[in-house]
Design a protein around this nucleic acid. Sequence first.
DNA 1: ATATATTTTTAGTCTAATCTAAATATTTAT
DNA 2: ATAAATATTTAGATTAGACTAAAAATATAT
Lengths: 218, 218
Amino acid sequence: MITLTEENYIKAIYHLGKQGRENVNTNALAEAMNTKASSATDMIRKLAEKDYANYKKYKGVTLTESGKDIAINIIRKHRLWEVFLVEKLNFTWDEVHELAEQLEHIKSQKLIDELDAFLGHPTHDPHGDPIPDKNGEFTFVEKIVLSQAQEHQTYSCLGVNDSSTEFLQYLNKNDIGLGSTIEVVHIEPFDKSINIKANGKLLTVSQSVAKNLYLKKL
Amino acid sequence: MITLTEENYIKAIYHLGKQGRENVNTNALAEAMNTKASSATDMIRKLAEKDYANYKKYKGVTLTESGKDIAINIIRKHRLWEVFLVEKLNFTWDEVHELAEQLEHIKSQKLIDELDAFLGHPTHDPHGDPIPDKNGEFTFVEKIVLSQAQEHQTYSCLGVNDSSTEFLQYLNKNDIGLGSTIEVVHIEPFDKSINIKANGKLLTVSQSVAKNLYLKKL
DNA sequence: ATATATTTTTAGTCTAATCTAAATATTTAT
DNA sequence: ATAAATATTTAGATTAGACTAAAAATATAT
């Protein structure tokens, strides 16, 4: 049986080590976990013993295949819950993260399979991050920010970079949400402001907005 | 901050002591928690210290008002999650309990308020037990079993007593579910078998079925 | 009413996850 | 290449929640 704390360390190693492939330093891990280096060392030892991690003293830690599987499964759960909270329970994009940190530890294969189906097998969460499928495969989507978009091209909104309340409220006001269709009508060479048609409505957005909106080409 | 274990003990005291009003013995509590009497004593001490419980050595334990509030809130969450799992995620009535035991500990007021609204403010869970509202008030509904029903009266299905897979499958096969309308057409005096019209369809059910189906008068 | 049985509490350990402080490796700078 | 700085590990303690075994209180039975 894997404990909640072990799961959280595994997740942190995964994120810090770029999908768990690169070595993660004890100090970096301790900081991510809001704990001390000595505690991180203890946990790394334990994870290595349970064969979730590869560890050589003073050389940092990576995840084993089974460690990665666990991490990916937690990420899948986290992101599916985020979609649920935003799409079904009226949460805003910035409210969901810490709640999903709790929900991701609920243990039930059927729950997560059914939730996935209930949500229509989403491939991305409200921040535009990909949701691994049942087999741990990520859907790769070329993600760009609006400021890198091309004139006359049509895109779909994947998520946001800045998830401040103000920015999300700005998007709401302009009817831009997950999956919104955005057509780049014109890019003003002078100040790089962008004329877009969002869900049919014309709108001019500034660079600072454009830098924080993730899109995929349609 | 209240721990998960504390919450579970409080819930057990609430259930064992008839809404936490009656004294609960250390041994009974230990058995309910699958632990030993000495552990229960330790926890009772702790709960009393935190003012969730009233405790006199050798005299058992009751809940304080704040302890009861906590218990009722956990029960509310548990039962709302059960409704969600059955109504939205295709769980059967007997699959939901242990999963709801995990979900009931998720901490977010907004989550539970929104879930409640999403489900249409249900008053009863899939087992026919009442769901306390936001203020901790239970909807009292006179709950009878089908075997006590009156001829020519119409009822609504509240839940089941026996939640074995076989029984639930029997009900599914006959299109009886939560909220189904059941009219008692005729009670056979010879063997007490009951002729009912369930969701429009005529059906004869035996006493053993009738004893396990909870109804409320319409 | 007293002995016996049962229940509850106490005392002392154990494990997981944390901490501080000290010791040891490794890295960096000269 | 060595000293200083930084990173990591070790050693020993702490806390929550559990355990066993023994002691103490309460309940039961004759």
